[in-house]
Measured scan of single mutants.
Amino acid sequence: ENVFHPVECSYCHSESMMGFRYRCQQCHNYQLCQDCFWRGHAGGSHSNQHQMKEYTSWKS
């Protein structure tokens, strides 16, 4: 089941984030949609070496 997250992806700027959401544990307010995370995208001061937390629902 695809879950809708009402936040913007920090890389592709999609405002309709579906599926899993990934939030960086080091960068303030840096979040990736499932597609950008799986493709290994990073931007700004974010590094792929940073720990990311996976969210499967909006409330989590």
Rank of each mutant, 00 (worst) to 15 (best):
Y30V: 06
R23W: 05
C24L: 00
S60T: 11
H41P: 06
G44L: 01
V7A: 13
F20S: 15
M18S: 14
W58T: 15
W38K: 15
H46A: 06
Q51P: 08
Y22L: 04
F20H: 14
M17A: 10
Q25G: 06
Q25W: 01
M52F: 11
K59G: 15
G43H: 08
C33P: 02
Y11A: 06
Q51E: 13
V7W: 09
W38M: 15
M18K: 12
E1W: 03
H13S: 08
R39A: 14
S47E: 10
C27M: 01
Y55K: 02
C33R: 01
E8W: 03
S16R: 12
W58M: 15
N48V: 12
Y22W: 09
Y55G: 09
H46N: 04
Q31C: 07
G40P: 05
R23L: 11
H28D: 15
T56W: 02
K59S: 14
C9V: 00
S60F: 12
Q51L: 07
F37S: 05
S60V: 12
W38V: 14
Q51T: 12
H13A: 08
Y22M: 07
M18Y: 13
C12Q: 00
C12W: 00
F20P: 15
L32G: 02
G19V: 08
M18R: 14
C9G: 00
D35F: 15
C27F: 03
H46L: 03
G40W: 04
V7H: 09
N29E: 07
C36L: 01
W38N: 15
Y30S: 02
T56P: 14
C24M: 01
E8A: 03
F37K: 11
H5G: 08
D35H: 11
F4L: 10
S60Y: 06
V3Q: 14
E1V: 05
Q25I: 06
S57P: 15
Q51R: 10
R23D: 10
C9N: 00
G40D: 07
C9H: 00
F37C: 02
Q26V: 15
C24H: 00
F4K: 09
G43N: 14
E8L: 05
W38L: 15
Q51A: 09
K53D: 07
Y30D: 02
Q26L: 04
K53T: 07
V3T: 14
S14I: 06
C27R: 00
S60H: 14
F37D: 02
G40V: 05
D35V: 09
G43Q: 03
E15H: 13
S16D: 11
M17Q: 11
M17F: 11
K53E: 10
K59T: 12
S14V: 13
P6L: 06
S60Q: 15
Q51V: 08
W38E: 15
F20Y: 12
N2L: 07
N48R: 06
P6F: 08
T56V: 07
S14D: 07
M52Q: 04
A42S: 12
M52S: 01
P6T: 11
G19E: 08
H46S: 06
Q51Y: 13
R39L: 09
E8I: 08
F20Q: 14
F37L: 05
S47G: 05
C12H: 02
H41C: 11
Y30N: 02
S60D: 15
E15Y: 05
C27H: 01
Y22R: 05
S60A: 03
S14K: 10
A42E: 13
Q25H: 06
Y55E: 14
E8T: 05
Y55P: 09
E1Q: 04
N29H: 09
M18L: 13
Y11K: 06
S47I: 05
S10A: 10
S57N: 04
W58E: 15
F20C: 14
C12G: 01
R23Q: 12
S14T: 10
E8D: 06
H41N: 13
H28W: 07
C9W: 00
M18D: 14
S16P: 10
S45W: 04
Q49S: 12
G40A: 03
Y55D: 15
H28N: 14
W58K: 15
Y11H: 10
Y55Q: 09
S60L: 06
C27Y: 02
A42Y: 03
Q34I: 00
Q25E: 13
D35K: 11
C12F: 00
W38S: 15
K53L: 08
Y30W: 03
M52G: 02
N48T: 10
G40T: 03
C24S: 00
S45T: 13
H5E: 14
S47H: 08
R21K: 12
H50F: 01
R39N: 13
K53M: 08
S10P: 03
D35W: 04
E8S: 08
Y22F: 05
C9M: 00
H5V: 08
C36W: 00
Q49F: 07
Y30A: 03
K59V: 08
H41Y: 08
S16T: 11
W38G: 15
Q26F: 04
K53V: 14
W38D: 15
G44A: 03
S45V: 05
Y11L: 04
Q25R: 07
M18G: 13
M17W: 09
Y11N: 05
Y11D: 04
S47T: 10
C33W: 01
Q25P: 03
S10E: 03
V3N: 14
R23E: 12
M17C: 09
Q31T: 13
S16Q: 12
S16W: 06
Q34S: 09
A42D: 05
S14Y: 04
R39E: 13
W58N: 15
M18V: 14
Y55A: 09
H13E: 05
G43S: 13
F4R: 09
Y22K: 05
F37I: 09
R39F: 04
E1C: 15
R21A: 11
E8Y: 07
E15F: 07
C33K: 00
Q25A: 05
L32Q: 03
S45H: 04
V7Y: 07
T56C: 13
C27T: 00
S57C: 13
Q49L: 11
Q34D: 05
C9I: 00
W58G: 15
F4G: 11
H5W: 07
G44Q: 00
C9K: 00
F4H: 09
D35E: 11
Q31R: 04
Q49Y: 05
Y55S: 15
E15R: 12
W58I: 15
C9D: 00
N48K: 05
C12Y: 00
H28M: 11
P6E: 10
E54F: 03
